[in-house]
Amino acid sequence: MQIPAPFEYVRASSVDNALALLDRHGPESRVVAGGHSLLPMMKLRLARPDWLIDINDLFELDYLLVDTVPNNGRVLRIGAMTRHTTLLESDDIKRLFPIVIDAERVIADPIVRNRGTIGGSLCQADPAEDLSTVCHVLEGVAVVRGPAGERMLSMAEFHRGPYETAVAQNELLIEVRVPIRDDSGSAYEKVERRIGDWAVAAAGASVTLAADGTISHVAVGLTAVGLDRNVTEVEAVLVGQAPTEQLFVEAGRLTSLACDPLADQRGPVDYKRHLADELTRRVLRAACRRAAASISDITI
């Protein structure tokens, strides 16, 4: 039987209240949202907070809205307490960021997705977490609030490495802002051992096409293969080029070289490099197809 070590429980009533509680209870306090990463860790006694601050009543952080913000232009603002199920069922997301739908379909299972939140997923920063890669690829901005106010962090600044983010003990991730680019398409694909499992490997891509059909902007990211950043190596190769199968093959090759997977029970290194290569080709193909579909007069 797995039972967490004893702790005190308190439910926050607002973001300000949650910040005050974090401040009051100090470094041995932890915030719980969906709890589907933290509670299993507490049951295994890998995490032993003295205080658990439940933020499930912060409905003010459960929203999805298209907005125009200074310096970022048009963005989709996603509240940190937005559940996976809500993301998966959103028409705005379907239309603007199909990569999120691709990823959400393979995150855990529908029941876990009822509880899990985007904020929890990003703050957990599991190296096999799909939404971290998705937010890197979409060049999302994390809005973090603390006693000194709000700060905006790029995903590269936010995500420091496995299980580590830039969110300080007395801060809370409030929102993720995803820039909306016209004439764009995106895709995510994962190989898993069985449904709902963590990725053996996964890849995501976002592509913007110029009026002449060439790639004007691209980002490629990988999950679970030892790369906590976008694969910048492929960007220079792809930008300015017409999307062709030959180009995708080259991007796949570069990606398989850029990643640094570990052999584990999910597979050996060469297999994971092979997946990085193959999945990169597939997501680039799909992202370009979707970008082209959003521009009626361009065909690939």
Binding site: G35, H36, I111, V112, R115, G196
Partner: peptide, 22 residues
């Protein structure tokens, strides 16, 4: 461990795995 789903109950009408909810 949140895998098998035999502990599923409905919380406000939505299925949740009750081994992973306090």
């Amino acid at each position: 461990t949140t895998n098998c789903g035999t502990c599923v109950v409905l919380m406000d009408g939505q299925p949740v795995k009750s081994c992973t909810v306090l």
